[in-house]
């Protein structure tokens, strides 16, 4: 490899500014953290409630993404329908939209008076908003695109002849999927699942709009941070640190999948 020349000074300075833009908020959080009382802050009942609820809901959203997103990714990657381009745009939309808009849209669809929510509420006597299930749906709405698009990319990169080889050996489509396709795209599947889970864990806007904020039922970690921000900033900072720690851990574990070549 040829030795790399250093960046021009002006670019290096701009790069440093950019890096600081990301480093300083984290430093602020660490500097303002109530370290001596951190244990006590995190042991508070509402913190524990929020943490447990967040874990439950984000894992539920990840599971929902897996169960529903997997067929969707397969269809997007291998289907022949002309609708695929349109559906891909629909799937990508929640990644680009402000989550609050997503929350409003979810209300209009699945709320008590919503497009499908009204008949559902009539049939089952309940609606999703303000329920823990609503949190899972809101989180899945925002998080599933990460899973679907990551998995679709993995499936597209997979040589279709592997599945054909398996079929020629007598494997039916389900068995091909289970024993060949999925094991071969396992890295994308795991990366997508963790990305979706991490996004669900950090979800705020769609959740508070669609599911509200009630301790123990719909108040997840980010919502708890928001509620605590003015009244008990220390608790908010402690909760934020938990989220930062989880996110950092996920990034570290997935550095190979997400930064190929850069993870030296």
């Amino acid at each position: 490899m040829t030795p790399r020349r250093p960046l021009p000074a002006a670019l290096a300075a701009a790069a440093l500014v950019a890096a600081l833009l990301f480093a300083l908020p984290l430093a602020g959080l660490v500097a303002r953290a109530p370290w001596p009382r951190l244990g006590a802050e995190l042991a508070r009942a509402e913190v524990r409630d929020a943490l447990l609820l967040s874990l439950r809901c984000s894992l539920g959203a990840a599971l929902l993404s897996l169960v529903l997103g997997l067929p969707l990714a397969l269809w997007l990657a291998e289907g022949t329908s002309r609708l695929r381009a349109l559906v891909r745009v629909l799937v990508t939309l929640p990644m680009v939209l402000p989550p609050v808009v997503g929350g409003v849209a979810l209300l209009l669809a699945f709320g008590r008076q919503g497009l499908v929510g009204a008949p559902l509420a009539h049939a089952f006597g309940g609606a999703l908003p303000f329920t823990t299930a609503g949190v899972v749906v809101a989180e899945a709405y925002v998080a599933m695109p990460f899973f679907v698009l990551t998995l679709e990319a993995g499936l597209r990169a997979l040589d279709p002849r592997y599945a054909q080889a398996a079929a020629s050996l007598g494997a039916r489509p389900w068995r091909v999927l289970r024993t060949v396709t999925l094991p071969l795209v396992a890295p994308s599947l795991v990366a997508g699942l963790v990305a979706a889970w991490a996004r669900a864990l950090g979800e705020f806007g769609a959740t508070i709009t669609f599911a509200g904020s009630l301790r123990g039922e719909t108040r997840t970690l980010p919502l708890a941070v928001y509620a605590a921000l003015e009244t008990s900033p220390d608790a908010a900072i402690a909760l934020s640190l938990v989220l930062v720690a989880v996110a950092a851990l996920v990034l570290f574990l997935l550095r190979r999948q997400w930064f190929p070549g850069g993870a030296r």
């Binding site: 054909q164 398996a166 020629s168 050996l169 071969l184």
Partner: peptide
């Protein structure tokens, strides 16, 4: 294809990377 009973050998073999040699052969 799965019901044809046709053996197919590809030029780049297309062995299943996640299975060892024996399980590749046992797949059929």
């Amino acid at each position: 294809p799965e019901a044809r009973g046709v053996g197919l050998v590809f030029q780049d073999h297309l062995l299943f990377a996640h299975l060892d040699a024996r399980d590749n052969v046992a797949y059929g």
